[in-house]
Write a protein that binds this DNA or RNA. Sequence first.
DNA 1: GAACTTTGACCCCTT
DNA 2: AAAGGGGTCAAAGTT
Length: 462
Amino acid sequence: MEVNKAERIVIVKPVPSRPTCSSFRSVSELLAGAINSSPSNACFATAVSAIRPKTVRVKPMANRSPVGMLSSQTEVSSAVSYSSDKVLNSDSKANVLYRPLAKVVSKTTLSLSENLGNSNICHQQALAQVEASAQPPSQFKYHFRSDLSPNDLHQNFSPLSEREKKNEPSKMASENMEDDQKCLPFNHNGDRYSYDRYNWRKYGKKQVKGSDYVRSYYKCTHPNCPVKKKVERSLDGQIAEIVYKGEHNHSKPQPVRRNTSGGQGNIFISDGTGQDTNNPSLSNQLNERIDGSEGRTENQIAVGLSGKGLLSYDPVAARVSKFNVGIPENSCGLSGDYEEGSKKGLEEADEPRSKRRKNENELGISGGEVQAQGALVQSNIDSEIIGDGCHWKKYGQKIVKGNPYPRCSNLNCNVRKHVERASDDPKAFITTYEGKHNHDMPIRNTVGSEPDSQAATSKDKP
DNA sequence: GAACTTTGACCCCTT
DNA sequence: AAAGGGGTCAAAGTT
């Protein structure tokens, strides 16, 4: 990878602000609405919490970067985000990492995914994004954002098998809440798995100066493992950024395979080939992507994820893949850090931690992974109306310097959307938004679009 | 009582 | 050299 030291690395870190929403609804209402209402319900997005960058933090990283930090800026930058036409070069010090604008998973998508009966859509998308960005980075920084709460997403993407067992809509909300706990990524030892399948222990928490973010510090619980990660979350618990540091000196915790009566796998993907999972292909994907984004020296993974977009693992994921409804184009409610995201959901679920832990122990897959899986319900990128509910017109395309990803810039009103995708994998893509819509979103009635909406914009609408 | 999180304080690095 | 902020520690609190 080519290194351009003349350039500087700049991380633009917007500070989120909440758009006002005249029609607030309770979580249960949202859930109910997501489950029962039609896909075209534009209000869903409105109801979903959203974070929109209000200001930006420009943080020169060159000096502070640990060894190897951002050394593969190419992947990082390109994979994460863009600033207009600035080409983000590898190790470039001039790279600009934009924190993607908050996005909302449209009701349409939720409905669709529900129809598909899987919870992997978002997860796959996340994986795709990660994969797209997961070049051999020494430093990784993923930026995913979503406006869905763990419950929001999870509720709507609950596993098919789970739904099949539940016939009473009125109970779905509460039961799904419970499912959240059941789907916590914990290993058999009770240690908490993150989406990355490592175990983390929180050792610190701080309010990020000059922003609304709260930063949590985690250490890998594996003995002598030097890996740490810090997770930034907005006040409402949404994960804004995850940064990994260090290299694991051990393999990922071995998953415990369990089968429950409901046919819920709750299985962790093995470190190897993934053959011991219900979905080998998926497993491979996960491993590849996860491996590609983690465990590298001084990796900095700022994953734009939705701490709230948690989903339970659905062994039926394979089914989802079959549907492959479309090409993901954005980061829907991702849970790069399942641990973080799930926590919020758990707290909201108001369930005793002891119980949570118990449930957690029964699970092997991280919600983040699942969530990413679920992100695949997307429309084609070149569609005039993309999943974010807005019209987009492709006005350019270029090969990102330093990597093979073509980059498209869609222009609409004041908003630009950059979509980066791997040439060899149409599912691997990174979407970055710039600017703010100055108009209402077109109303769609079609199912099949995806959750690629910009939260604030959507929320401002009635 | 164990395990984990929270939180204030401290240390160190950067500016 | 001083101030400010980030990262870490460790006691207290929570489940």
